[in-house]
Computed example of a mutant assay.
Amino acid sequence: MTVTTLEHDRAGRGEPLVLLHGFGSTRDDFTALLPALTASFEVWSFDLPGHGASPMIDGVPSVAALTAAVVAELDAQGLDTVHVLGNSLGARIALELACEGRARSVVAISPSGLGTPAERVHQANLMVTSRLLNVARRPFIDALSETAAGRTLLLAGMRARPWRASPTEARIGKDGFGAQRGFWSTLVNAIVVDVPRHLRRIDCPVIVAQGSWDIVGSGQTPRYTPFIRDARFVVLPGGGHAPMSDNPELIVDLVHHAARRAGAVSTP
């Protein structure tokens, strides 16, 4: 496999915190959280392989391969262990980083990987629908993102209160689902058939969280807690599958809490 450089943004000062978005999204999905997070951390926001401005990896895009691409980027940036906040596929990769000893703490929002066969089919159908919709409406996404009604249309199903999102967040589908490279192979290998295997290795603080209105992740998230030592499960009231602008203050608090459990001293 050829590892490619992942596009990223870097801001803030403090211990390193890596943000990993979900399948079909981009690093802009975390826009609502950045002001608070950069006040306490050096924040690195990555576009996952094939998403946004990051090129696709060679070979099969399994979770292990996508994680290897993230690890290679951490190495290239001189980052050893980092705090990680991930959503959906990004949350699944965050847990894999913890399995490999590269995470100081993890907040995993709606991680994929522990769905039943029926839940996997449901999730795959939703992802295919999002792909087709965003490819079709890609020329109109910029204009739609400028109004509350347009943002609701663009983010319905992912945010519980999509009208609250910023135009930047509403445009994630343009370079996410709408232009994602390797969509089908990533969907199959990193979502549909993926099963976590080494969760017992995790020895850093982990919080798994899920929005109370998440219609994508089904019951996967709380299933992680028995397999991860001292993992804590949290419900995000009124949050969707990607609740970054639904519950920004609560998510930031969870990141701070996990970092404090890991011994970070720079967080409030």
Rank of each mutant, 00 (worst) to 15 (best):
L17C: 08
H122P: 01
I207D: 05
N247L: 00
A179V: 02
M1S: 12
Q220T: 11
N125Y: 07
V63W: 02
F233P: 07
G240W: 04
V70R: 06
P237G: 10
A94Q: 08
T152C: 09
W184H: 14
A94N: 06
R201M: 09
H21A: 02
G22W: 00
F177V: 00
I228S: 05
A156P: 04
L132Y: 13
V63H: 06
A179P: 04
T38E: 14
K174G: 04
L254I: 05
D230S: 14
L236T: 10
E169Y: 00
A231L: 12
Y224V: 01
L126P: 03
P226M: 11
G176E: 01
A39P: 03
D47L: 01
V216E: 02
F41I: 04
V70W: 02
I172P: 00
A136P: 02
T221W: 07
A160H: 13
G176A: 00
P222D: 11
T221A: 15
V216T: 03
A149W: 10
T221F: 09
T116W: 06
G211L: 08
A148L: 11
N125V: 12
G101V: 03
I251Y: 01
A36I: 02
R151I: 11
P226S: 09
D75Y: 06
P237N: 11
S88H: 08
D175A: 08
R171S: 05
L6W: 03
E100C: 11
I228P: 07
G182T: 11
P16N: 09
L20D: 01
V255E: 01
P49S: 06
V188G: 02
S212M: 04
L74P: 08
G113M: 08
D253L: 13
T81V: 13
A76Q: 10
G115E: 13
I109N: 02
A262V: 08
A170W: 05
D246K: 05
A149C: 07
A72L: 08
